[in-house]
Design a protein around this nucleic acid. Structure first.
Lengths: 134, 134
DNA sequence: TTGATTTCCTACCATAAAGGTAGTAAAATA
DNA sequence: TATTTTACTACCTTTATGGTAGGAAATCAA
């Protein structure tokens, strides 16, 4: 049961951009890569998913880079993880694409739904702003 | 972010035994396998971890099988998942064996600790008895 | 004491996911 | 035109998942 580097690094990127939001400058992945000690090429790959959603602005060329499209408080951790990590369902049985044929008389599904709810509640109610440097 | 079949099936086994606890009979994996439609061989493998902990009694031979060593209410979901699934840390950074060198000035670690706490709280406060058939 | 049953134990294996690397095209700027 | 930086595609190694196979050892009933 764990979040992989995709989700973690995705959040690292978003937090970095949030911490530089007030300057309104484009930040290069090179800068993030060096500051956070994560391979540039891997960050690029993760960025593809983040950039497909509408929450970033990007610019190519020198002085280019990325910046947040909105204020940090507008990004919930849940939506960021959903984009960078992918599916957050704790068990496949809860996923509509892999629905379990026995789900209606399964005694453990209540457990998984309950767990899913507490996780969902936490991730939906925290935003980037809650974890920025002061 | 998900629990694998090891954890899920481990819980299925434990819930099955809990639901038959009052009869005080040994239950065979064959019965559970047929009832829950899970390969006997795979259940055997999962059973090895469950049986290494002290919460089951086992007996070989005909009329043998497994039963709970204690009442269902004495088993928290957390300890069952810990045994059948293995490590439940949501990110590797929280695991003492893979401690992150940057953890002291990492802004996302607060997020993971918070998430870990709500999950831990939920799993520690639910027992097998909470999910038994009435 | 033999046969059936069931746990116990070890080894193996195919597929998918994780965690990247490499190379290049396209855009933007100086 | 050269440099910088994103955008895109392809590839690769290692680990984890989700099993299967075969047999040994214990237990009980006939």
């Amino acid at each position: 049961m764990r979040i992989t580097t995709k989700g973690r690094y995705g959040l690292v990127i978003m937090l970095y951009l949030a911490n530089h939001y007030k300057n309104d400058e484009y930040i290069t992945l090179k800068e993030i890569s060096e500051s956070e000690n994560i391979s540039l090429k891997y960050l690029e790959k993760i960025m593809i998913s983040l950039n497909k959603s509408d929450f970033l602005k990007s610019l190519r060329g020198s002085d280019g880079g990325y910046k947040l499209a909105y204020e940090p408080k507008n990004y919930t951790i849940k939506e960021i993880l959903n984009v960078s990590e992918g599916n957050l369902d704790i068990v496949t049985c809860l996923n509509s694409e892999h629905e379990c044929p026995k789900k209606d008389n399964c005694s453990s599904i209540k457990l998984w739904k309950g767990l899913n709810d507490v996780i969902d509640d936490y991730l939906s109610n925290k935003t980037l702003a809650d974890f920025m440097e002061e």
